[in-house]
Computed example of a mutant assay.
Amino acid sequence: MIRKIMILCLTVLLLSGCVPNEIRVENHTGENEGKAEEIFKDDTRLKAVAALFHEDQLLVGIRVKTFSRFTKRKIAKEIKKELEKEYSEMEVTVSADSKILMETSKLLDKQEEDKKIKKKIKHVISLSEEET
């Protein structure tokens, strides 16, 4: 009986680690966001992504998986480079900082005017440039 319970607990524990990646993309431009989604889905190191296309800005917050957290800045730079290649006419900001992911997610959840969104995007970008 104890052996069955332990096997059941182990199975549940292993399966809980197989949660699919959460990728949220919102587009307020005429750009094709499919390329960005493909980049995010193909990268196995990512756990969550929030991306916002607005005018000439592409704001991306990422969360990396547990064992990749020591190289999260390198991962963010690699993703930024790929996105800049695909969206050369846009200003791309990518951050692996959790506060950027959270703020970008908040922007995706709220439906606001263009002026307010642009102001908040600038605020989030300034947060990403801070040293933590």
Results as ranks from 00 to 15, higher is better:
E31R: 11
S88K: 15
V124I: 15
K47V: 02
E131H: 14
S88C: 08
E26S: 15
A76D: 00
K74E: 15
I100D: 06
L59T: 02
I39F: 09
S16I: 01
Q57K: 14
S95R: 03
D42R: 14
Q57T: 01
D114G: 02
N32H: 07
L108W: 08
I75Y: 10
S16G: 15
A48Q: 11
E55R: 13
V60H: 05
K4N: 15
M90Y: 09
L15P: 10
V124H: 01
E33M: 04
V94G: 01
E33C: 10
G30R: 12
E55G: 04
V60A: 02
L107A: 09
I79R: 02
E89Y: 13
A51S: 08
I79M: 10
H54S: 13
R24D: 12
S128V: 00
Y87E: 03
E33D: 15
T71Q: 12
K47M: 08
V92I: 14
K122I: 07
I5D: 11
S128Y: 08
A48M: 07
I7A: 13
K65Y: 02
S95N: 07
K110S: 11
L14G: 11
L52N: 00
C9P: 03
S98C: 08
A51R: 06
L13Q: 10
K65A: 00
K72T: 04
A36S: 06
K85T: 12
R69M: 09
G34K: 11
I100V: 15
S128I: 10
L15R: 02
R24Y: 04
V25L: 14
K72F: 05
R63M: 08
V19P: 10
D56S: 12
K110T: 03
E112Q: 12
L46G: 02
N21I: 00
D43C: 07
K47Q: 15
T66M: 05
D97W: 06
M1S: 15
V60C: 05
